[in-house]
Design a protein around this nucleic acid. Structure first.
Lengths: 131, 131, 131, 131
DNA sequence: GTGGTCTAGACCACC
DNA sequence: GTGGTCTAGACCACG
């Protein structure tokens, strides 16, 4: 599993870590029972402060995605995959809803919104390869 | 023109003011040459801090949507309408792009994304009436 | 409302802050809608680091006890009182359950446990005044 | 004598071992003069790290429950039974005191505390059989 | 080795 | 003024 951080893009670093772990679990790249990299190692890999990683891991524990094995590290919880998959869809759905609401409030018609959506999806497909 | 503010919904208040002015101009509800309410009056109307209105107006001047008429107030710039209409699309387009990028990064396929988009558009149509 | 911190008594400082706020809300000493002291002021009052207070306040937000009023501070949520009262009972109940389980596992009879409970309750009443 | 370990239940593993030995001695299941299993064997039995057993045994020696017999192993001290019986009560008493203190600090009355205690004792009796 | 806690001090956005 | 984020570095308990 590879993680990447973009500093100063508006999203807090700890939150970027949280999301990437969740996405990794949802996609099956990180399996339940597997140990995540230690706080210090992850910090070194991402070139960020251990405290920041620690905060991300703490949140992941609060969200029942990680669980502590004392003196050993943090492992992905047994039912984390199901949980992350659901959360992932909900999150994207919420963001779509908010964009659409904003778009209509600003006076754009459904046709215009759909047109924009399709053009962006196509452009993304060109850049990013197949999905 | 009527404005509505939702405090603490995540979007900064000054930004809500900026957007609503731009949307109003884009939709033709506020016409070029028209004077916007004074900082104090707008603040009273929206029950927010005058500093916040002031910041919004400053940004609208930076964005060439408003211009100062010495001793009189702020008026909508001559070419503001065209500008706002373009920006409106660009903004929505950017947000679509970011949602889509996030969705694919999280492992969702284009089909799944399109499905979510359509379901949300339909649900919005049900609630909010025609566009 | 008065807060007191005991450093190095095993309970993390941020947790002591969290509990005292919740107890204050549950007991009605802090009312819904009221602003809690600012991070910096609370830190000064308790002679601890602002970051520690910040962490406590963040948790209280996660627990829906506090909510942010942007640029103004943190206020007690509308339904925080009910929430804190319930949590308070549950917490005490859980601790009783664990003490009792431990006591019986260690071979003490119900009579012995009840005797100990009563003697401690009486001694507490002597020291601490009426409840 | 049979030991059971619950990893990650909040109580350190070495402490669980310490307590179970003490409870065993207090209840008469382990007799003074008897040899406890070697560090390695105990570790294998409980499927825990030998270091952890070692730490527990060290603490039991500090508490005068075990004593070293050079070249042979660790045996239960002559007066360990009396000692453990006393400590057992004290430990439970301390925990009652702390729960009660916490409960009253949180604003619960003595009546409420007693009610909670009784209800938990009854529920424990239902589940766990007579004491 | 592991994570958790705390302190200190800096910078930012918002009102 | 407010809280939020991040960094740096120290100390502790646990296995």
């Amino acid at each position: 599993m590879l993680f990447r951080i973009q500093p100063n893009n508006g999203i807090p670093i700890y939150d970027q870590v949280v999301r990437q772990v969740k996405y990794g679990v949802a996609a099956g790249a990180i399996l339940p029972g597997e140990l995540v990299p230690s706080v210090r190692e992850m910090a070194k890999q991402l070139a960020i402060n251990p405290n920041t990683v620690s905060r991300a891991y703490r949140q992941l524990q609060d969200d029942d995605v990680l669980e502590q094995v004392r003196g050993t590290g943090l492992q992905v919880a047994a039912d984390a995959k199901k949980l992350c998959r659901m959360e992932r869809s909900e999150l994207v759905r919420d963001r779509f809803r908010s964009v659409l609401a904003e778009g209509r409030r600003s006076g754009l018609s459904d046709d215009e919104l759909t047109k924009i959506f399709n053009s962006e999806l196509k452009s993304l497909k060109r850049e990013g390869g197949e999905s």
